[in-house]
Nucleic acid binder design. Structure first.
Length: 286
DNA sequence: CCTAGAACCTGCGAGC
DNA sequence: TGCTCGCAGGTTCTAG
């Protein structure tokens, strides 16, 4: 489910409720949840035991917990339906509870990875000197990262022979953008999702990036309050979804700029939402 | 090398 | 009621 803003909310929750604690015990309840940990669930738990968790980090939609005393980290991806929850020890197990992590303190809470569709998962990996888990070296910086290079992104965009929404979802070009925020940023920029990237001008790229950042920051501002409790709740519903979306999920509803009904088009096994008047398709679109 | 499409899962709501 | 179909916010592998 989650895109960058939701994952960042989770990261903050982990930093507050999990960082600094020492792992006592790990239970892997579904093998698919650790499939990226090649050595398997037993090994995953054994490797974590006794280690102190460092400050939670994030790049794009990936987040990780460095082990304070080793050059490795627990990498997490929420996939489509993943949640990381901090729950009281005696709370009933969630239906789709996949991994449980207990700590050697008396705070009375544990970390749970819950995931219905099992596209997400946890795994342990070595980290490079800058702290990045080695398996996500190909993931680009995200647009909220101060070191994101707008000029390099523009150049890479023009080099690609593809269309703009595909490029926005390509995590090796720019990370953290998913289907919702792609549609939202494109609506704000008045760009059709099938616009070829080749002809992008510098100002157009700059405008698009500006809107990507705006929509993410807006979502972050709303969702950022939901972790201020005992629970690290990711379950999406940052509150932003219901109220503030201009394009995504609004098929048939009037465009907030021009009143034209928003359209939904099947696209890459999912959907694209756009205003047919504000976001004109390219002339030679297929 | 690059790009487009399928595959990986489970559950929910709509329609018959 | 119960079945099938379409749909869900992601990533990765493979075929061309």
């Amino acid at each position: 489910m989650p895109e960058l803003p939701e994952v960042e909310v989770v990261r903050r929750g982990l930093e507050r409720w999990v960082s600094g604690r020492i792992v006592a015990d790990v239970q892997v309840l579904h093998p698919r949840a650790v499939r990226r940990h090649i050595a398997g669930g037993e090994d995953f738990g054994a490797q974590l035991q006794g280690h102190r968790v460092g400050l939670a980090q994030r790049r794009g939609k990936y987040l990780w917990l460095p082990l304070a005393d080793s050059p490795s980290a627990v990498l997490a991806h929420l996939g489509m339906s993943g949640q990381l929850l901090v729950q009281p020890l005696d709370a009933a197990d969630e239906k789709h509870l996949r991994i449980r992590v207990r700590f050697s303190d008396d705070l009375g809470t544990e970390l749970r990875f819950v995931d219905q569709r099992t596209f997400g998962g946890l795994s342990l990996h070595g980290t490079s000197p800058d702290g990045l888990p080695d398996v996500i070296a190909h993931i680009a910086r995200d647009p909220l990262d101060p070191l994101f290079d707008d000029g390099a992104f523009h150049d890479a965009l023009r080099r690609r022979r593809t269309t703009i929404k595909r490029a926005l979802l390509d995590q090796s070009l720019i990370s953290g953008v998913g289907n919702i925020y792609a549609d939202e940023a494109l609506w704000r920029t008045r760009l059709h999702y099938e616009r070829p990237t080749t002809g992008f001008t510098r100002p157009r790229t700059a405008e698009l990036l500006g809107h990507v950042r705006e929509v993410m920051n807006a979502a972050l501002a709303v969702g950022g309050t939901s972790f201020d409790s005992l629970y690290v709740n990711v379950n999406g519903e940052s509150g932003y979804f219901d109220r503030s979306l201009d394009a995504y999920g609004r098929e048939g509803e009037p465009c907030r700029r021009c009143g034209t009904p928003i359209r939904r088009r099947p696209w890459m096994n999912r959907s694209s939402y756009f205003c047919p008047r504000c976001q004109r398709p390219p002339r030679v679109a297929s």
